[in-house]
Amino acid sequence: MSSGVVANSVRRPPVNLLDTYVRGWHESAESIVALAAELDAADWARQTDCTEWTVKDVLAHLAHLESELCRSEQSTYDSTGGSDVVSAYTALGVEARRDRTPAELVEEFAAAVDLRAARLADLPDDPAAPAPVTPGGVAWSWDTLLRNRSVDVWVHEQDIRRATGRPGGLDSTGAHVAVMTFSFAMPFVLGKKVRPPATSTVRWNVTGETPLELVVRIGEDGRASAIETLDEPSATLTMSTETFTVLTAGRRAPDQVDVAVEGDEELARATLGAMAIMS
């Protein structure tokens, strides 16, 4: 099962956003606790867009990670010293909670969030400093840890909302962090995964609660970078905030969502198929 961690191809924002990341994480966590109070047995058993995970499994995953991050010292899980949270690690956390009731999982998650929120009231001055405790012992800075937690918890909030038919939260702080983070990965998507000819351009026109307009161009050297808006890009992809985040989070395939395509159809379809950046 995917860990919900944003791929390392995402470049870092140019400013210290730790406070924003913590606010996004905390808002989404509180929304999940509030949502949980509305769910019945059928809701907890519903399949989510996370392969093989039910709503209850998603909450078990969140309870696992937040509890691990409450440790005073790093857990001993062997992550091979890398920077990606491996699926085996997250699967262990869910499996260990298989016999717990939803109420017990909510209690564990809420308690861990409260403790972490108190600890994160005093943030480090250096976002690039190594975080002392990370999921599975991965080598993350404070910036990477807190950004990923904001994105991960918000994305899982959306998993629960879609599975149970309770939309919302698409204009929250977590939504803005997720859209920003995913947008920074689109040059990687176009330049490294799609690899169209030089001077090709793709515009993402994201509408709705958390809008985005982004144009990425392939330079003569083959490198992709964001540029000012063009009147006539090679391809334009128009979609809602929810569709943009569903595709970039790897939750659904392009043929399962609504996207309006203009211009180079082949380039547009290749780009849509490469947008997933969460591992």
Rank of each mutant, 00 (worst) to 15 (best):
G263K: 02
A235Y: 05
Q256F: 00
A224F: 06
I227A: 08
D221R: 06
T241Q: 11
T248H: 12
G219M: 07
T236G: 12
T245H: 08
G263M: 08
A226S: 15
E213A: 12
T248M: 13
R252F: 00
R252A: 11
A226P: 03
T245I: 08
E228T: 15
L230V: 14
V257P: 04
I218C: 10
R251E: 05
A260I: 06
L214S: 13
G222A: 11
A235L: 05
V259R: 01
V259K: 02
E228H: 13
D255K: 02
L214Y: 12
L214P: 06
T243D: 09
G263Y: 06
Q256W: 00
V257A: 13
D264Y: 09
A249Y: 01
M239H: 03
T236F: 04
V259W: 06
D221Q: 04
A260D: 14
E262Y: 02
G263S: 04
Q256R: 01
A235G: 01
T243S: 10
S225T: 13
M239D: 08
E213Q: 14
G250T: 09
G222P: 09
R251K: 02
L212A: 14
G263A: 09
R223T: 14
L237G: 00
E242K: 11
T248Y: 13
I218H: 09
S240K: 06
D221E: 07
A226N: 04
L214V: 12
